[in-house]
Amino acid sequence: MTDLLNALVLMLNFVIIPATSYGAQLALGALGVTLVYGILRFGNFAHGDTMAFGTMFTIFFTWLFQGLGLSLGVLPTALLALPFGIGVTALYAISIDRLVYRHYRVKRSAPVILTIASVGVMFVTNSVVRFLIGTNEQRFSDGQKFIIKARDFKEWSGLSEGMKLKTTEALTVVVAGIAVAALFWFLQRTRMGKAMRAYSDNEDLALLSGINPERVVMVTWIITAALATLAGVLFGLDKSFKPFTYFQLLLPIFAAAILGGVGNPLGAIAGGFVVAFSEVMVTYPYKKFLKYVMPENLEPSGLMQLLTVDYKFAVSFIILVAVLLIKPTGLFSGKVIRA
């Protein structure tokens, strides 16, 4: 019995809790990608770097507040800086749209041209981030590190396995939950949100109904910037901030968005969690876990790890390939924003 409990705690500690918070981060990222897909109808390659941009400004404001002696006590100061980071990123996204994307939208260019333009934006955003904060790793989490410490848990439960819950992990899930609820409320209940869905659903009819496309696009960029910054900051708090890592998040994020059906917000969330859980579960070494659940003489000898962490991108890729081969429209058949 204790063995089973130990095994369960092991799973919670190393798979379920980390994958849940990682999944929430990916879901927020995939939501941003899927919104741009649904409304502006192109795959935004600059999204990873937009996340880095938003996180960078949040870090700057965090440092500023830390310098001024402001803090949130047990919570990271970054939470206080978050709205400011989002604001700067939203302004940046809107300016980029005015300077770059609007031209192709007015000309009704093929989506792939917009995607290439997003590659240009990626370069520019990337260099802005390099200019301002450099390429090194930054850790900006402060406040209380753990909600539950592994040692405390062991003492409390008497088990040999400890379970820890980082503040950032709990925070990720809570903040992502609030953000997603707010997004769905917005899309479902507000005039502007419905207009966005209508525009995504049937652009011509939306125009005939008097919906102003430029307003829709602007609001889309604001929301996308907010989601990207949130995803980036939560990821950075939980792990660390490094510009190149954020570029690499593109693959799992796109895999999540495509798995859920492009343009489908609910799908993007589901996709984020599927990708995160697959990644963590496939790269977790099950040796200790099996030791607990298997009879003593059947103990495994190796690490029992399906794939080393170095190949975690392969997981996203395999998911992507499976979706493309089996159901290219994704689990929730996307293409338009449906809330």
């Binding site: 209508a198 659903d201 009819l205 008097g210 338009v336």
Partner: peptide
């Protein structure tokens, strides 16, 4: 393509009255 296929009937009518 004269309706918003992914929206409810009521939302379609609401969108008609957008202005």
């Amino acid at each position: 393509n004269n309706v918003f296929a992914g929206m409810t009937v009521q939302e379609n009518l609401e969108m008609g009255a957008y202005l």
